[in-house]
Simulated assay, not measured.
Amino acid sequence: MPPTDARRAAVLGSPIAHSLSPVLHRAAYAALGLDTWTYDRFETDEAALPGFLDGLGPEWAGLSLTMPLKRAVLPLLDTVSETAAAVAAVNTVVLGADGRRHGDNTDIPGLRAALRERGVERVPSATVLGAGATASSALAALATVCTGEVTAYVRGERRADEMRQWGRRLGVPVRAADWSRAAEGLGAPLVVATTPAGATDALAEAVPERPGTLFDVLYEPWPTVLGARWLGRGGAVLGGLDLLVHQAVLQVEQMTGRAPAPLDAMRAAGERALAARG
Rank of each mutant, 00 (worst) to 15 (best):
V87G: 04
L111E: 10
V11C: 06
L142V: 09
F52Q: 08
G33N: 11
L263M: 14
A160T: 02
H102D: 13
G51R: 13
L63K: 04
A204W: 02
L12A: 05
G57L: 10
E43D: 15
T134Y: 09
R181I: 07
V73C: 09
P173K: 13
P260K: 14
A193P: 04
A160I: 03
G171A: 02
L20N: 00
L274N: 06
A88E: 15
V237S: 00
E157Y: 08
L142Q: 05
L32Y: 00
P211H: 02
N105F: 02
Y39K: 04
Y29R: 06
R100G: 12
R169I: 07
F215C: 00
W179G: 04
A84K: 04
V172R: 00
G171P: 02
D5A: 11
R41M: 12
G156D: 09
L65M: 07
N91Y: 04
V207M: 06
M266C: 10
L129M: 08
D104K: 01
A176Y: 05
A86P: 03
T195R: 13
D104S: 04
P68C: 03
R168D: 14
H246R: 15
A261P: 03
V192D: 04
T4H: 14
P75M: 13
R26W: 05
V73G: 05
A30E: 12
P109F: 03
V225Y: 08
E117T: 11
V123A: 02
V245A: 05
V145C: 00
R101V: 09
H246A: 14
D201G: 09
V154C: 08
L65G: 01
R26V: 11
V90L: 07
V145W: 00
S137D: 07
W166Q: 10
R101P: 10
A135N: 07
L49P: 05
R164D: 02
C146Y: 09
L77E: 04
G185E: 04
R7C: 11
G62W: 08
L241P: 00
G57R: 07
V90S: 01
E220H: 15
A176T: 01
P173Y: 13
L20T: 00
A86F: 01
V174F: 11
A84D: 02
A30M: 03
Y153K: 10
T66R: 03
T194R: 10
G96N: 13
G257F: 09
D264S: 14
Y153D: 08
A182N: 05
N91T: 11
A88H: 12
P22C: 05
T79G: 11
E205P: 08
D45G: 08
P196S: 06
L241S: 00
D201L: 09
E149N: 09
V93W: 04
E271H: 06
L53H: 09
G103Q: 01
A268S: 15
T106H: 01
T44A: 02
E149L: 12
E149T: 14
M67R: 12
A133D: 07
A269Q: 07
